[in-house]
């Protein structure tokens, strides 16, 4: 288990370094930052001066290591658009998005896994069909539309929940539901498929032959084996949510990292975009590393690989 963990961590680190270099490079490919910074009225001399002042004329590798070193120390640069250090700008907003994503994924799992299990126990029955309809709806409905429907029903008509902002936990209920419902179908279908496969396995028959109660057969012997691919999927979805909740954050006017990313890309706010990309990538890599560990804990056969 230790060897496996170390190996996985090494791989995660490697991915992180490669991703950070690419994200660093990508912005230089997109446009010349010196020209962008100098603005439309700048002369050739201004651009050269800016280039020298910010060190854009140095070799790429030197710039990268310099940038990475500052990044690790928590210095993410300065946002010229927001006129704030990027670290200050990002931290609070990333927290909001992280919280939203985490709660949404947990909610999706809590709803989808039991639903998938129920559908798998009684395939092709009314329970299974209902679960299928629910999941197809979640997959097919665009998030923005579902969000607007929820706002109309719960905020405008019933006046139960606030429609926008991020001031209290109540503000997070509707956006969490929207994101969770988007993540739920895949988890539900994967759980169902996994359970159906596992339930026909020989060792499930053995568990029944031993006289174990159905509850124990289902949750101790079947679910543990069926849930393994679901863990990996949930990790990917969580990572996706961090960067992909832009639409939801915009509709509910939540000052999250998604909205910040959208804004800084539009404003060509180089430092902010870079910091966000790198942070998203790091979080993504870390979540996948944790999912790998969780899978190794669930499935002893993985530990040797």
């Amino acid at each position: 288990m230790l060897y496996y963990s170390v190996k996985r961590f090494g791989l995660a680190l490697l991915v992180a370094v490669v991703v950070s270099f690419l994200s660093f490079q990508l912005l230089f490919l997109a446009s010349d930052p010196a020209i962008a910074l100098a603005g439309e009225a700048a002369t050739e001399e201004d651009i050269i001066a800016i280039r020298e002042f910010y060190g854009f004329d140095r070799p790429v590798l030197v710039q990268y290591i310099d940038w990475l070193g500052r990044f690790i120390r928590g210095d993410f640069g300065y946002s010229y658009y927001f006129n704030l250090p990027v670290s200050e700008l990002i931290l609070g907003r990333l927290g909001v998005t992280f919280q939203l994503g985490l709660v949404a994924v947990l909610l999706a799992i809590v709803v989808a896994v039991p639903l998938g299990v129920a559908a798998a126990i009684r395939p092709n029955t009314i329970i299974d069909r209902t679960a299928l309809v629910i999941s197809v709806l979640g997959q097919a409905m665009p998030s923005f539309w579902f969000a607007l429907v929820l706002i109309v029903v719960f905020s405008v008509n019933l006046r139960w929940l606030p429609a926008s902002g991020a001031d209290s936990w109540q503000h997070f209920i509707l956006p969490t539901i929207v994101i969770a419902y988007f993540a739920m179908p895949a988890i539900m279908r994967l759980t169902r498929g996994g359970m159906i496969e596992v339930l026909s396995a020989d060792y499930i028959r053995t568990a029944k032959a031993k006289g174990l109660r159905p509850f124990k057969v289902l949750f101790k012997h079947a679910l543990r084996n069926a849930i393994i691919p679901v863990v990996s999927l949930a990790a990917v979805q969580f990572g996706f949510m961090l960067s992909g909740s832009i639409v939801v954050e915009t509709i509910f006017a939540i000052d999250g990292a998604g909205q910040l990313a959208w804004e800084s890309i539009n404003r060509n706010d180089l430092a902010t975009v870079q910091a966000l990309i790198l942070l998203f990538a790091m979080i993504y890599v870390m979540i996948n590393f944790l999912a790998d560990l969780l899978n190794a804990w669930l499935d002893p056969r993985v530990r040797v690989a």
Binding site: D202, Y203, A207, A209, K210, D299, P300
Partner: peptide, 19 residues
């Protein structure tokens, strides 16, 4: 089952839970 009557299956490779 398992108490008064027990069963041994054909496939020992898959009859035990891998987890």
């Amino acid at each position: 089952r398992g108490d008064r009557m027990a069963m041994i299956f054909q496939e020992p490779m898959t009859s035990l839970n891998p987890s």
